[in-house]
Simulated assay, not measured.
Amino acid sequence: MSRQLPEQESASTPAFYHELVDSTEKGFAFRQRYWLRSYLGYTPVRDALPNTTHYALAALQYSSIIPKLITQNVDGLHHKALSSVWNTAHKQERILELHGSLHKVHCSHGHVMDRATFQDRLSAANPEWKTYVDELEATGQRPRTNPDGDVELEGIAYDSFRVPECATCLAENRHNSILKPELIFFGESIRQDVRDRSYADIEHCSRLFLVGTTLATYSAFRLLRHALELKKPVLMLNIGPTRADPLSGLEKIEMSSRIVMRDAVRAVLGSRVDDDPIIERMLRSGVVQPPSEDD
């Protein structure tokens, strides 16, 4: 096995839902490919910190200016930004992860486990790859990781990677290696309860604020369209073209959220920023992420 940091590919081949849940040998090979790449990519996702926009939105949530937040992201950073002020139940009530989360894993029989637990099981089943990950962390190197926790590998053979079976299924005398993160893959439908909740959040809001999205996925685009059909005021903060640009009734500001969100929150909250140390701390927190050369 190579001990070199993987080179970046020109494009990443996505995993499709029907491939991951295929019960044949071909499906198992797809899961080997997915879980090796995800195993290497999960640590950077797990260790990622909220940026200034996450904290600005968290300040508005904490202040009840934003009663509900719907995110397409699967990294859990909106939850991290509120972890010091809200418990898990309150965050789950106020934040809807439209496309799921990388931090939970479930099997085809519905058994759920924490991703950290499954990551440890992957490490135990693949000690040579655990050594590789330890070497990367010791040298401060990280493979380039996509937002879905997948890394881009080149020239790697996946057939020796061992995918553990579901422990609960084994306890029930059933062999089952069909496991996936609790996120929506290409070709997979959003659960009906999540879809219903997203529509309810749109129907109960007085206005809609969109931040940093091109609305390329239809699951998010249809929520915007539903808001416009209900005559809700809609403001978008995003740089570059989006799927929503041709729609009437949409106001758009072409500017990076990292530039304006802190000042916007201070303007909205006024003296509350100085009176509440939690809000003041949130508006001083967050990783600053300048645009990359690719952007």
Score class of each variant (00 low, 15 high):
143 P>Q: 09
189 S>M: 11
14 P>N: 08
281 R>C: 07
282 M>K: 10
203 E>N: 10
100 G>C: 06
72 Q>A: 13
210 L>A: 13
123 S>E: 13
188 E>G: 09
235 L>T: 15
241 P>Y: 01
242 T>G: 07
276 D>R: 02
293 E>W: 10
116 A>F: 05
232 K>H: 06
155 G>V: 04
175 H>Y: 11
118 F>I: 01
267 A>Q: 14
170 L>P: 00
79 H>I: 00
164 P>G: 10
280 E>Q: 15
219 S>P: 00
3 R>E: 07
285 S>H: 06
236 M>R: 02
293 E>T: 14
253 I>N: 06
271 S>D: 15
205 C>S: 14
6 P>E: 07
60 L>N: 08
133 V>W: 00
249 G>Y: 09
93 E>K: 12
211 V>W: 01
273 V>M: 08
252 K>D: 02
148 D>W: 07
144 R>D: 12
207 R>A: 14
32 Q>L: 00
115 R>V: 01
212 G>T: 10
202 I>C: 06
152 E>H: 12
96 L>W: 08
246 P>M: 10
263 D>E: 15
168 T>D: 13
125 A>D: 08
229 E>G: 07
288 V>T: 12
132 Y>S: 03
124 A>F: 05
253 I>V: 15
48 A>H: 09
137 E>M: 05
181 P>W: 00
26 K>P: 01
164 P>V: 07
58 A>F: 04
45 V>H: 02
118 F>Q: 09
269 L>C: 04
35 W>N: 06
41 G>C: 13
158 Y>H: 01
152 E>W: 04
287 V>Y: 03
283 L>V: 05
69 L>T: 12
240 G>F: 11
176 N>K: 05
229 E>F: 08
163 V>S: 02
62 Y>C: 05
73 N>D: 12
268 V>A: 10
38 S>V: 01
231 K>Q: 13
114 D>M: 04
125 A>V: 08
89 A>P: 01
31 R>C: 01
228 L>H: 07
243 R>G: 06
11 A>H: 09
151 V>Y: 02
150 D>N: 15
188 E>W: 06
42 Y>T: 01
17 Y>F: 14
113 M>C: 11
81 A>D: 06
3 R>W: 11
149 G>V: 03
271 S>L: 08
271 S>H: 10
272 R>C: 01
264 A>I: 13
205 C>F: 06
31 R>N: 00
195 R>F: 12
254 E>Q: 11
197 R>I: 05
191 R>K: 13
8 Q>W: 10
234 V>Q: 04
137 E>S: 09
35 W>T: 06
58 A>M: 05
267 A>W: 10
12 S>A: 15
232 K>G: 08
4 Q>V: 12
22 D>M: 05
275 D>Q: 15
263 D>R: 11
183 L>K: 12
152 E>I: 03
289 Q>H: 03
195 R>Q: 09
247 L>M: 13
280 E>C: 14
29 A>S: 04
83 S>L: 05
217 T>P: 01
269 L>P: 05
143 P>C: 09
67 P>M: 02
219 S>A: 13
70 I>Q: 06
121 R>E: 15
201 D>W: 15
144 R>G: 09
147 P>C: 08
57 L>I: 14
93 E>M: 11
294 D>W: 08
222 R>K: 14
206 S>Y: 04
69 L>Y: 05
206 S>Q: 15
98 L>Q: 07
199 Y>S: 13
258 R>Q: 13
63 S>V: 06
195 R>D: 14
96 L>A: 08
194 V>C: 05
